[in-house]
Design a protein around this nucleic acid. Structure first.
Lengths: 344, 344
DNA sequence: GTGAAAGCGCTAACAC
DNA sequence: GTGTTAGCGCTTTCAC
């Protein structure tokens, strides 16, 4: 019922054309004014900006990204939103804004079947033009990605590529296990992480190595799959604690697993650390707020997010040295570890 | 050094043009084939799809969204990635994929100054054409947003608009406080949430109401700001616990605050719940894995994320009844509450 | 069944 | 200083 000219084309959407019309200038002039290019008269600039303000106009990320070569947006692709990836996100957010990038988080939401290769699909869609570069958290496949610069955090086995960030999983696992040995534990179990990730394998290796160095024979029944997840690890712990010769300590591959172990131990009526010592890995925030607070290997998760952004930023600026980064993990002894019961 | 025609234009980027060239058809034909439109010969279809597969082509979300009216992408805008918003994210992810939408999470990363109004800016940039609709978590301003359909979760005070999802904060707070009263507590403190959010105000009101109904006089010194945050709430708790007549129980406005309170209590050498009872609100995952597990009001966070997506989906399909949704909160008694010490 | 032409909102050359 | 022209990758009429 209303004429085509007395309202914006697309209802509710303010475009650069609307601004231009109201300011009485051409579209390119508005573009220049907004982007601070030279060649706009002060009076025009002022007028345009006031109209922009009035209309609440913001340039569409989509349209500009299609035209520009760089969009100033970084993408971070995660399989799932859990404490680990969320901590990375926080760091990445901070670093991005400091570096002048916007940040887009994209969860593949792949339930079941297509869980493998999610990052490839997501990347193709976004890398079109939306994001300049991407940070991929715990990717599943070793597909060589070439479309845009990519930094991987905790990569898949086989992806020892240069633009990766890893913590010192092997060394950390050694330290964790050694800590338990030093306390007097001899029967130490391990809850394994996600089998396809390098980190999980290295943590298991470090655990074994520490045992062997101490002259302890690793027992196959003492290693269970936790998949880096709470529930699965709780289940694994329940199994471990009902063994005939049950372990007095557990090194869990990450904090979520450790918290799962703690929960399972409690359900069986055990007290941590009196009856069972537990060490985690990561130092997610929840590790500090559990009771007892978790003894764990501190990974500077937010710092890793920051580093990833810096690496990506360097990559985008044409710098070549994407040296793989390894961050050392530091043991923090909190309340979940103590000498084994039989030494009391 | 290499000729301009023996490689794709933009290095590393596979476009629809590349597919068309390799398949020996025109660009529109490829488009039709990909999108399953009628009017493509079976042989052509097969050939095109095989090239698509070979090249690993995925249609650019950006380019297609610019042309299409609907993009099939939902945006979820959060101020920060913390357990609360992350749980919502999970639910939203699931629901989106079930409804056939992709999901984009966007964190405003506004540190300091421009924290107010972050959602407006983000929305303008994305609403351009990238996303069909948005879910905004705990927005800060009451700006009327008209560009695209929006659903708000836990809105700002004054935003009693229709497309909002709230939990029954008032009722929940009453129940939480009543639970403590029933246990025999008489000196009950409250750690307040983010002052500008309706939920925070209602929880404080519910707390007061329950006290008054029980004939207890609310004490001003017993209410402190926690800002829905761990650290700030720990600080507030430290203050509360050093009062001359210190409270025997705390109702915290959310779980992060409750966990902060628990941490502070421990640092002062108190045992929860023997020396201090604590009730939270939300039931974030960490509430279950803390020791003792937190007594709290269960909000189905993932369910809220799901509902938000459904509301948004309805809105996008032109349905009108965006009735404000209120979800009731249910008390779950875990290990952080007990009768006050003087009743032992 | 297929391709040529137009255009989404915007920015980058280049005229004027 | 400013506007005209062209084009990013894609989808959509509409001829052929």
């Amino acid at each position: 019922m209303s004429g085509p000219s007395d309202q914006p084309h697309s209802p509710g959407r303010v475009t650069i054309g609307d601004v231009a019309r109201l300011a009485g200038v051409s579209i390119p002039t508005v573009s220049k004014a907004i982007n601070g290019r030279y060649g706009v008269a002060p009076a025009t600039l002022k007028r345009v900006l006031s109209v922009v303000d009035e209309l609440g106009y913001e340039t569409s990320i989509v349209a500009s990204s299609l035209r520009r070569q760089r969009t100033n947006v970084l993408g971070i692709l995660v399989a799932e939103f859990e404490p680990f990836s969320v901590e990375l996100l926080k760091g990445a957010s901070t670093a991005s804004s400091e570096k002048g990038y916007e940040l887009l988080a994209y969860s593949s939401l792949s339930r079941g079947k297509s869980a493998i290769g999610w990052e490839r699909r997501s990347l193709s869609r976004l890398a079109g033009t939306l994001i300049d570069g991407a940070i991929i958290v715990t990717p599943t496949v070793l597909a060589p990605i070439e479309s845009i610069p990519v930094v991987m955090i905790d990569p898949h086995t086989g992806q020892e590529g240069s633009a990766t960030i890893n913590s010192d999983s092997f060394g950390g696992a050694q330290i964790a296990t050694q800590h338990l040995i030093d306390l007097g534990h001899r029967n130490i179990a391990h809850i394994r992480g996600r089998g396809d990730l390098i980190s999980a394998r290295l943590r298991e290796d470090g655990y074994r190595d520490a045992l062997l160095r101490a002259g302890l024979q690793p027992r196959p029944e003492n290693v269970r799959d936790g998949g880096y997840q709470f529930r699965q690890s709780a289940q694994a712990t329940q199994e471990l604690l009902t063994l005939t010769d049950r372990p007095t300590a557990i090194f869990a591959a990450n904090d979520m697993s450790a918290l799962g172990a703690m929960s399972a131990a409690q359900e069986l009526g055990l007290t941590v650390p009196r009856d069972l010592s537990i060490v985690g890995f990561d130092d997610i925030p929840e590790a500090r707020s559990s009771t007892p607070p978790l003894t764990t290997l501190v990974q500077p998760l937010q710092e890793i997010g920051v580093r990833a952004v810096h690496m990506l930023s360097d990559l985008l600026e044409g710098e070549d040295p994407p040296q793989p980064t390894y961050l050392s993990a530091r043991l923090v002894v909190r309340g979940s570890t103590a000498p084994p019961p039989d030494l009391y």
